[in-house]
């Protein structure tokens, strides 16, 4: 399965400023019983978005602006905890294509890259600016690895490994690449006995 390629994303930001937002918060365990990926966007941040009776809260995630946003700005150490890929599945299904924070947990970052969701770790100054300016018109360019902040916010570089960047820009996943290495894998297995 491939995903939609990602080169440039321009959107108003959705800001969740809490630090250490873990994947249990992004996708509570009760939604992990699914055997497909369908419809997880409805459940993303469920505890913030729904009252106990199932009605919607007035959280920004339920607002038309929130739902239209493709760039999520989150507090430090986003996506920590459980390895559940249901977290990025939920975010992409909700409509998010880029997550920006000052730190993003390893497994979440890795899972995001495999689902067309670009995780960006940005320097503190830009992060603070983004946290303080929810709804700002931000542009992300994967070609140049730059985040453009509006008004006098400036332009900031971010880092991403060449392979992940290539996969995201071309909308290809890694399964095909690994399949292409099957001879090398067979040789490795043979040599180990």
């Amino acid at each position: 399965m491939s995903f939609r390629s990602l080169k440039q994303v321009t959107s108003k930001t959705l800001v969740l400023s809490s630090t250490n937002i873990d994947t249990d918060q992004i996708m509570p365990a009760k939604f992990l019983s699914m055997t497909t990926k369908a419809g997880l966007g409805e459940h993303v941040f469920s505890n913030l978005r729904y009252n106990t009776d199932g009605s919607e809260t007035d959280h920004v995630l339920n607002s038309p602006e929130g739902k239209a946003s493709e760039i999520l700005v989150a507090g430090h150490n986003f996506g920590c905890g459980s390895s559940r890929e249901h977290a990025p599945w939920g975010l992409t299904d909700y409509g998010i294509r880029v997550v920006i924070s000052s730190e993003i947990a390893d497994i979440f970052r890795n899972n995001s890259l495999k689902n067309g969701l670009l995780p960006i770790i940005i320097e503190k100054r830009a992060h603070n600016w983004l946290l303080e300016n929810p709804g700002a018109d931000v542009s992300v360019d994967l070609e140049t690895c730059e985040v453009h902040l509006p008004r006098n916010g400036g332009t900031y570089k971010f880092e991403i490994d060449a392979f992940s960047r290539h996969c995201l820009m071309e909308g290809v996943d890694e399964m095909g690449y690994l399949q292409g290495q099957s001879d090398a894998i067979a040789e490795f297995e043979a040599n180990r006995g």
Partner: peptide
Amino acid sequence: FGIGTTQVGHVLANQCLLMPKP
């Protein structure tokens, strides 16, 4: 180490993972 479901698929099919070294 823990992996996501996409990588579970990679390991099922290839017994390998693409990994940057920590």
